[in-house]
């Protein structure tokens, strides 16, 4: 360790960070069980379906907030969120690129009542069934039902988080968006708020096992961008052509924003931090 890294934000040596990372993963698993118990309790409490879903979403949010706090305290990562005041608007559809495993943890840790679309397998898994149904999360099993449920949720004033890629980004390749997001946005005619996520150094991608940790503590840099106006894309609602146009636009938008980010990393406030990369 160099002395400079002790004066500023101390970075742990790699071996210790591997232990911290393992603890983080174990904590996430244990947290899942605690959430399942809390949600079962929450389901027993009185309240409408909507109220219960909100309560369950708040439990997930709190757990994710704790998890981020744990990872930051253990020196595994740092979360940097810019434009946070643009989040948590009623009827807002938050869309983000998906570089790492913990993108959703970062986002939901800052959004107390968020709905998401989750893999339908989680509805069949006895460990995850409770939480995902309790929180009213939407299954991706049948695309038509998925879109209708998401639109209803947004039109009722709820917030949603969607990763339009549908899965984590393949490192080094341009983003490819599925059309579900554009379908939902155009049908709901909602506030569409992009969040660009950058994870430096890259870690927890699709291509890496969890124990292949980066050379230094990683930073999750989330930037909430200005809303995207839907008017230019609408024709008669969400025609297949309108959906294709919006999908193409969003794809290009994110690819450009992310590449721009990578070209000017020095303009970032956390830029100085990178120089103290303990290794």
């Amino acid at each position: 360790m160099s002395s400079t890294s002790q004066t500023e934000t101390p970075g742990l040596p790699k071996s210790l960070r591997l232990v911290s990372t393992a603890i983080s993963f174990a904590g996430f698993g244990a947290g899942g069980l605690v959430i399942a118990v809390l949600m079962t309790l929450s389901r027993l409490l009185p309240g409408s379906q909507q109220k219960r879903a909100q309560r369950s979403q708040f439990i997930v949010h709190t757990a994710f907030r704790l998890h981020i706090w744990l990872m930051e305290s253990l020196g595994v990562m740092r979360l940097q969120l810019r434009g946070e005041n643009k989040l948590n608007q009623p009827g807002q559809l938050v869309i983000a690129n998906h570089p790492s495993l913990i993108d959703v943890v970062c986002l939901i840790s800052r959004i107390p009542h968020a709905n998401c679309i989750v893999k339908h397998q989680l509805f069949n898994n006895p460990f995850t069934w409770g939480p995902v149904t309790g929180a009213g999360f939407i299954s991706n099993k049948d695309p038509e039902t998925m879109i209708n449920e998401a639109v209803d949720w947004l039109n009722a004033g709820g917030t949603m988080v969607i990763f339009p890629e549908g899965t984590r980004t393949r490192p080094g390749e341009p983003l490819r968006f599925q059309r579900g997001t554009a379908n939902i946005a155009l049908r709901a005619n909602c506030r569409l708020s992009p969040v660009t996520i950058r994870c430096t150094p890259t870690t927890l991608t699709k291509a890496e096992p969890w124990y292949r940790i980066p050379a230094r503590r990683f930073t999750m840099d989330l930037q909430v961008q200005d809303d995207i106006a839907l008017a230019p894309f609408k024709d008669d609602g969400a025609s297949p052509l309108a959906v294709r146009r919006l999908t193409r636009f969003l794809e290009q938008y994110f690819n450009e924003e992310i590449n721009a980010d990578e070209r000017h990393p020095g303009t970032r406030t956390q830029g100085a931090d990178y120089q103290h990369s303990g290794s």
Partner: peptide, 8 residues
């Protein structure tokens, strides 16, 4: 052409 397109 995905399943939503097919509905349309």
């Amino acid at each position: 052409i995905d399943s939503i397109d097919a509905v349309d």
